[in-house]
Design a protein around this nucleic acid. Structure first.
Length: 568
RNA sequence: CGGGGUGUGGCGCAGCUUGGUAGCGCACUUGCAUGGGGUGCAAGGGGUCGUUGGUUCGAAUCCAAUCACCCCGACCA
């Protein structure tokens, strides 16, 4: 394509609105155009790259046995009511109604429609397994779109769904998709790590996320410094360390006067004891305002996702001090001891120490030498703690590191959650109706592009990996005003195109500086320079964007050389 | 939703405190020069100052409401 004809221009300056490098580069290079918050148009050059990404994704999912279909964005709200996700998605779900006042939604994902399709078209175990996917525009009314294409409200996503008759079948599909995802990231030049994840609003038994490690990532990952264990912060587990001063002897409970000492921090100071000698009691309220007590060692923080999962996934929030006094719990002195009619969830950390300081439910008093389960009971003992860097890996006992990541793929084992709710059953060999076992697998196309740019750039601009570069190379012709050079350039361009190469031909009447800057900014894998200086010596310059390495080759062999380099 | 910020030619910004009818850079048009790292000179075109209402003889500027966008948090396949 001739750059002079391209719809879209590079800019010298970017809006102060753009903070992320990928966002700045996408705007500076004229690749995207913002229409509204979290809503973008893709300009021709970006669209080429996105189509390449899309095709790599399509190719890998096809290889994994996927069948591509296309489902509508617009869907009746009733099917979302049926699965119960109208409420779960809440305000993130774009809703509208048609002229007959029928309620519709703009789909943020497609489990419902596809499960209902499968219900119609699958009858027997002989029809399974299936792996169905589409690449479709999704809509989510995000609370806060941000970072250019990183988090948007309208975006293209590949979503795949597996349907199996056994957990082994599900495992197979799940693993096949993980392998496909890893191929995709390799091919598009994105470094990712696979982490264990919480299954969130989609629901289900197991889930992994693929994270592009990046300091601007929105997600927090804990990754073992030695082994391959990695999980996002909602999911991450860790080994509880035993108390340093663990007492052999369990001492009797004793009340101590602690006036106005309401926090672990002030207890630590006033009693000269480490926080891991204390127990903290946090009272949460769920969406129905049902209270819940989370009991955890003083040096640890509660992971609200883990806690919520133990409470039917209901949203939780900390009770205010007024709400506490309504429950007869003095703020700052809450305690599981003598706590009645409240569900108590205890973190496993309490099993690794004894003789703790603990609240008393009495204003200005704590107990010392409290021991679990001697002094209080619990409804559930489980891991409800938030992992921190330096905590120990559950697999190998080495230290965990904290990293930030951009979520670029998510896979879930759904199980029978949707098939049961929507009645997607098959008949087994014994003529019994059995719910189909499902999995779902998502990967965001636009987010991949911005993640790749976020990872592949330098001071000068984007450095496109070959596989997703909008063109194979930039042909910069210097001084197009000179008739003979322009002619050579035109011919050279069409010869390159005839070789099947995809060339962006800078035929503009611009100064060399402008052409070079734009070429670097756009970051195609190679730049080919035709100029008077080189042509005098019958030479053509080829520069690799990534390394900056320049090479002068003879005019005759230039096309062959270029072809070789590009196809390498 | 809470906190902070910003809306002025296509883009980036100044002007607002102290009211007097809009300016700079980039981009654009034309001409001349230049031609290996955003080149130089000259001449031009283009703005409902986010919107609505108010105060005033007079509002980009003061007041009020409202909308949009960005950042942090909360939230989030």
């Amino acid at each position: 394509m001739k750059l002079s004809k391209n719809f879209g221009k590079t800019q010298k300056e970017t809006s102060g609105d753009a903070e992320l490098i990928s966002h700045q580069l996408l705007i500076k290079s004229g690749l995207i155009h913002q229409v509204a918050s979290g809503i973008y148009s893709y300009m021709p050059i970006a669209w080429r790259s996105l189509k390449k990404i899309e095709n790599i994704v399509r190719n890998e999912i096809d290889k994994a046995g996927g069948q591509e279909i296309r489902m509508p964005v617009l869907q009746p709200q009733e099917i979302w009511d049926l699965s119960g996700r109208t409420e779960i998605f809440g305000s993130d779900l774009f809703k509208l109604s048609d002229r007959r006042k029928r309620k519709l939604v703009m789909a943020p994902t497609h489990e419902e429609v596809l499960t209902l399709m499968v219900k119609t078209h699958v009858n027997t175990y002989k029809d399974l397994p299936l792996l169905i996917y589409q690449i479709q525009t999704k809509f989510r009314d995000e609370t806060r779109p941000r970072g250019g294409l990183i988090r948007v409200r309208e975006f293209d996503m590949k979503d795949a769904y597996s349907f199996d008759i056994s957990n082994e079948g599900l495992d197979q599909n799940y693993n096949a998709m993980i392998a496909a995802y890893e191929n995709i990231y390799n091919r598009i030049g994105l470094e990712t790590i696979k982490v264990e994840a919480d299954s969130g609003a989609i629901g289900g038994q197991a889930s992994h996320e693929f994270m592009a490690v990046s300091s601007i990532g929105e997600d927090t990952i804990l990754k073992c410094s030695k082994c391959d264990y990695a999980a996002n912060s909602e999911k991450a587990e860790f080994v509880r360390i035993k108390q340093k001063t663990i007492s052999e002897k369990i001492l009797p409970l004793e009340e101590i006067h602690t006036p106005e000492i309401k926090t672990i921090e002030s207890l630590t100071k006033n009693l000269s004891l480490d926080p891991d000698k204390m127990i903290k009691t946090l009272i949460y309220l769920d969406s129905n305002n049902q209270p819940l007590a989370a009991i955890i060692r003083g040096d640890l923080d509660v992971n609200e996702t883990k806690l919520s999962n133990l409470n039917d996934g209901k949203d939780l929030r900390l009770a205010t001090s007024e709400e506490l006094s309504n429950l007869n719990i003095p703020y700052g002195f809450a305690s599981p001891i003598q706590l009645k009619n409240i569900k108590i969830i205890v973190d496993t950390s309490l099993n690794f120490g004894n003789n703790y300081i603990i609240g008393s439910n009495k204003e200005n008093f704590h107990y010392k030498n409290s021991n679990y389960p001697r002094d209080f009971s619990s409804d559930i003992v489980s891991d409800i703690a938030l992992a921190k860097p330096q905590d120990l890996c559950v697999k190998c006992n080495n230290k965990l590191d904290l990293k930030k990541g951009i979520e670029v793929g998510h896979v879930f084992k759904l199980g029978t959650k949707y098939s049961e709710k929507l009645g997607a059953m098959y008949i087994n060999s014994e003529n019994k109706q059995i719910p189909i076992i499902m999995g779902c697998y998502g990967i965001g196309i636009g987010r991949l592009l911005s993640a790749v740019i976020e990872q592949n750039n330098d001071q000068k601009g984007i450095i496109f990996p070959k596989s997703i570069a909008p063109f194979d190379a930039m042909l910069s012709v210097i001084n197009t005003k000179q008739e003979n050079i322009r002619k050579i350039g035109e011919e050279f361009y069409s010869n390159l195109m005839d070789c099947g190469l995809d060339i962006l031909y800078d035929d503009r009447d611009e100064s060399p500086g402008v052409k070079f800057k734009d070429s670097d900014l756009l970051g195609l894998p190679f730049r080919i320079v035709l100029s008077e200086r080189n042509l005098k010596n019958q030479q053509v310059e080829i520069q690799e964007r990534k390394s900056g390495k320049q090479e002068l080759v003879s005019f005759e062999t230039a096309i062959e050389k270029i072809k070789m380099k590009i196809q390498l």
